[in-house]
């Protein structure tokens, strides 16, 4: 059975995905609320996989919760914490429980997280994981052994349109496509002109591109991201606009900017959809969608 996300991607509609960040611990009520709130408003919900190398409730657990509530889940899978045996086992579990979308990621480095002394596994990288998933679909595991019952996934990956230098990033982008990536969720983009340049390149390939939208919550956050987050470029004018927002209204401004960006992307048909990341503020995603006129 083809996944609902794959169907949506194939329908030439403007696809909207968003993201759920599971908590550190078993207090899951808030995550459940976010899922309930968002499942009907977006085409699929990613569940992050120990984002920033911070140990949390697992992605697969969050994805099961999405499924149990009738939503469409995207299993984020990093290569940081599991070797190829564990990755495959989790793919089997996911498929058997109706999770049919995977986002293949390398994973953040261990020292940036909250278990800085742990071993980073990286037995595979994102390209090899994509490759392996396609092999499992053919009925064989990563070792070439026959599977009793195969899998079928809509597999995606990430790309950083603002990477510097750009060419190595674009080479890897192509390698991911060759390995079987069907869709991409990009790193956050703010400058549509620059993004259009990337899209011109990306349009040569038979893949769907969902532009990354990260909600700005303050001018300080925007500056911080510019300085510290790889591949994120917030233009001066947007920072000024955030800074000019009246006290206590910065978040509203951020929602407006995100909505406006999504609207422009859709109207200009720049890409195939968006992936909205409202890190730790999942509850404002409906407001962003409303601001985008969606």
């Amino acid at each position: 059975m083809v996944s609902d996300l794959k169907k949506a991607l194939g329908n030439n509609k403007f696809v909207i995905t968003s993201e759920i960040g599971p908590p550190k611990g078993t207090a899951l009520e808030k995550m459940y609320q976010h899922i309930e709130m968002l499942k009907g408003k977006v085409d699929a919900l990613n569940v992050t996989d120990h984002q920033s190398s911070v140990m949390r409730y697992p992605s697969i657990g969050g994805c099961l919760a999405v499924r149990e509530r009738g939503g469409e889940a995207v299993l984020q899978m990093t290569c940081r914490d599991r070797n190829r045996i564990a990755l495959q086992a989790e793919l089997l579990l996911a498929y058997s429980r109706g999770i049919k979308n995977v986002l293949c990621l390398t994973g953040d480095a261990v020292p940036v997280g909250d278990h800085g002394e742990a071993r980073g596994i990286f037995d595979l990288d994102s390209v090899q994981l994509l490759h392996g998933i396609r092999q499992m679909e053919e009925g064989y595991d990563f070792g070439g052994n026959e599977l009793q019952g195969a899998v079928e996934f809509c597999a995606g990956a990430t790309v950083t349109p603002e990477a510097e230098p750009l060419e190595p990033q674009l080479i890897k982008f192509e390698k991911k496509i060759d390995a079987g990536a069907e869709f991409f969720q990009t790193q956050a983009i703010y400058d549509l002109e620059r993004f259009a340049g990337f899209m011109e390149h990306a349009r040569q390939f038979p893949v769907k591109i969902l532009a990354g939208i990260v909600l700005l919550s303050s001018a300080r956050m925007a500056r911080f991201m510019n300085e510290n987050v790889p591949g994120i470029f917030v233009p001066r004018e947007l920072i000024d606009e955030m800074a000019a927002a009246p006290k206590g209204k910065a978040l509203e401004k951020g929602i407006e900017i995100a909505g406006r960006t999504i609207k422009a992307l859709k109207e200009e048909a720049l890409c195939d959809g968006v992936h909205i990341m409202a890190i730790n503020r999942e509850e404002v995603v409906p407001e962003i969608l409303a601001a985008a006129g969606l």
Partner: peptide
């Protein structure tokens, strides 16, 4: 490469430097 990757730079590479240390070059640059 901090992660020992083979197929190209991770998303953490920034201005040619490595995610774990802005003083270190990214192997793939």
């Amino acid at each position: 490469c901090h992660k020992g990757l083979l197929n190209g730079p991770c998303g953490g590479t920034d201005k040619g430097k490595c995610e774990v240390d802005p003083e270190k070059d990214c192997a793939f640059t």
